[in-house]
Each structure stands twice: as structure tokens, then as C-alpha cells.
């Protein structure tokens, strides 16, 4: 795809213009952490951030979302359509790649997830490359970063002479076209710096964790029960890993009566919960904590790849850093990757 560039001082202009036409969501600092939220003042945006503590998944799959309202007396069902256009600016390549995995899963025909599709269709995703990955990160393993991800429309990379901008989709090209006066073609010098940056960052990350992904398909047999039992002792069965994950997509539904209608909500669920596969009859194909933990790892590393042709982990490192019991997916990768 074509490479463009934008001068550093023009970024704020670009953001301001974007925020006039769309709902602009970008990370900004709050209580010592960066979080995504509606950016009202482009001056609040800071290029030098690591990553947001919680993933931006909630803009596409909210923690609680209305599926339908059913009015028994009037005899019709109503669903809510959301139509406003959203720009997610400054998402990291790993989190952007998570969206492309979600696309593979949730937009897999014949039944597309309409609620997700609607939000995804109305969003422009602009990623900002990581030039200084955190110690927890391992996106190099799944080729989901640190410079380019797989789910974004535009990729911004900070260099000493401004931003290198790569249009990744038609949507991205359209945005560049719309603000043509701010962008120009990237010159050779800039591209040299950009390519050097890619090599440097990848080398640095490769030295931390190098994995042969193709071997992960067989992880379930190789890892054996003992490994998962050992980690299951530690696991406290909270839902933190799944809720923080940028692509844990499993959901639960709940029905109740609200004022004048029956409603159904859906929201995040976690396979670590003992109720996840337990049926009303009491039967449960995954009884032990070790089975559930095994499923969590295997689902990400071999089951999603086998079913949806994408890896279920993007290496953002959130679960590694946030797990109260120190359960570490890198251990699995290092051992069996």
C-alpha cells in the first residue's frame, strides 16, 4: 500500500478535523494510566504512551449490550441500531490486530454477528506503532506488531521527521483523500528510517521470545495435564484475563423484564468460570479448573487457529501483567512454541 507522511504539528490539526466529523476516541492519561475515551481536546493526546490498561474491545463488544426489546402487548421486537461514525485513533497494532481476529470469528458466514458488524462498519481504526514495546509484550510472536498490525485502516509510525502513514484499507485511503492537504507522499529518507525502525524493534523483541507458531497447533497433546494442573492450583478463577483480553469474544446473555418490555442483554463471559459449560441438567464437559485453564490457553493457541484461521492471542501482555496469581501465557509459548 502507498506510504504517506504527515508533519508532527499537523497531527493536532488532523485530530481536530476528525473530531468535527466523527466521534473521536483516543487514549489519554487519567490517574497515571492511559484509557480510551472521547477526545474533546486534541491537545490532550500524547504520542508517548505505552498502551491502555484495558483493551479497546469494549467499543466493538461492550461489556453489556442490548440485543433486543420485545413488547408483548404490541407484538413486535425491537433492536437498537447504532449509526454514528467513530474514529479510534492511537490504538496499538496488537489491539488493532485483535479486531481482525474478531472479524474472522464474528463475521464468519453464514451467520454474521450483526451487533459487532454494525459497530465495526461504522468505525475507522487508526493505529500508532509501538517503537518502545513494554516488557510484557510479545506481539512479534503472532506478527501482530509492533509496527504494523492487521486490523487497522491507517497505520501511523512516529519518526524523527514526523509520522509515516500507511493506508491499509480502502477506508483508510478515503480518509487520506479527505484530508489531502495535510498528507504528502513519504520521502526516501523517511522510509529508510521507518524500515530501520522496524528491524530494530523486531530484533529487540525477537531476542526476548521467539516461537515457532506452527508447533502451537499440537500444544494440547504436548502440554499434557500436569502443566495445566500446576497452573490451575494458582488460578483464583476471576475473570480478569478474559475481560482484559482484546479479543476474548465469548459472551453470555441475560433476559429480564424492564418497565414495558422483555429485554435481552449480552455481555462478556469467561471460560475460567465454573458455570461456563455447565448445563442446567448439571452435566459439565469441563469439570476441573485445570480443564478450563487448558481450554483458555488451547482455545487461543490451537482451537481458534484450527476453526477460524487466526491466532487467538495478539501478544499485548495484558493478562500477563494483570493476573493476580501470575499465570503467564508466555510460559506456554516458550515451552511448546
Amino acid at each position: 500500500m502507498k506510504m504517506f507522511s504527515i508533519r508532527e504539528e499537523n497531527l493536532k490539526v488532523f485530530l481536530r478535523e476528525l473530531s468535527l466529523k466523527h466521534v473521536l476516541i483516543a487514549p489519554f492519561k487519567r490517574d497515571g494510566y492511559f484509557e480510551f475515551d472521547v477526545l474533546r481536546n486534541p491537545d490532550d493526546f500524547n504520542v508517548n504512551y505505552t498502551n491502555t490498561r484495558l483493551s479497546p474491545k469494549r467499543f466493538f463488544m461492550p461489556q453489556r449490550q442490548l440485543v433486543f426489546k420485545h413488547y408483548p402487548r404490541k407484538g413486535f421486537t425491537e433492536e437498537l441500531k447504532e449509526n454514528s461514525s467513530v474514529v479510534l485513533f492511537g490504538i496499538r497494532p496488537c489491539d488493532a490486530s485483535a479486531l481482525s481476529v474478531l472479524d474472522n470469528v464474528l463475521l464468519n458466514p453464514p451467520h454474521k454477528d450483526a451487533l459487532y458488524e454494525n459497530r465495526r462498519k461504522n468505525a475507522i481504526v487508526v493505529s500508532l506503532s509501538c517503537t518502545k514495546p513494554m516488557t510484557e509484550c510479545f506481539c512479534n510472536v503472532f506478527e501482530t506488531g509492533p509496527i504494523r498490525g492487521t486490523g487497522e485502516d491507517l497505520t501511523f509510525t512516529h519518526t524523527s521527521k514526523g509520522f509515516v502513514v500507511e493506508a491499509r484499507t480502502q477506508k483508510g485511503i478515503a480518509v487520506i483523500g479527505e484530508f489531502g492537504e495535510l498528507f504528502r507522499e513519504a520521502d526516501g529518507e523517511m522510509l529508510n528510517e521507518y524500515n530501520k525502525l522496524i528491524r530494530e524493534v523486531l530484533d529487540e523483541m525477537g531476542s526476548r521470545l521467539k516461537v515457532d507458531k506452527t508447533r502451537l497447533i499440537g500444544i494440547e497433546k504436548e502440554a499434557g495435564e500436569e502443566f495445566f494442573q500446576l497452573n490451575a492450583q494458582r488460578c483464583i478463577e476471576c475473570s480478569l484475563c478474559s475481560f482484559a483480553c482484546p479479543l476474548c469474544y465469548c459472551f453470555e446473555t441475560e433476559d429480564y423484564w424492564e418497565k414495558d418490555s422483555y429485554v435481552r442483554f449480552r455481555g462478556w463471559d469467561t471460560c475460567i468460570s465454573p458455570l461456563f459449560t455447565k448445563m442446567a441438567s448439571g452435566l459439565d464437559p469441563r469439570v476441573t479448573k485445570a480443564d478450563r485453564l487448558c481450554h483458555r490457553f488451547c482455545h487461543k493457541l490451537s482451537r481458534i487457529p484450527l476453526t477460524f484461521n487466526a491466532y487467538g492471542c495478539v501478544g499485548c501482555g495484558r493478562c500477563v501483567s494483570l493476573c493476580p496469581a501470575g499465570i503467564d501465557i508466555r510460559e506456554v509459548l516458550r515451552k511448546w512454541g
Binding site: V38, G75, L80, K81, E82, H111, A114
Partner: peptide, 21 residues
């Protein structure tokens, strides 16, 4: 984030075409 608009229908997959839920 987004403005809901109302979309009334009688349900069922064909009529919806879109939302399988």
C-alpha cells in the same frame, strides 16, 4: 457513543436478513 435509531420488525431471520439473534 452512538445514537440509537429504532428499527421495528416482527423478528425471524428472513425478515431481519441481518441479525441472527
Amino acid at each position: 457513543l452512538t445514537m440509537p435509531s429504532r428499527n421495528r420488525h416482527k423478528g425471524g431471520v428472513e425478515e431481519m436478513g441481518l441479525n441472527p439473534y
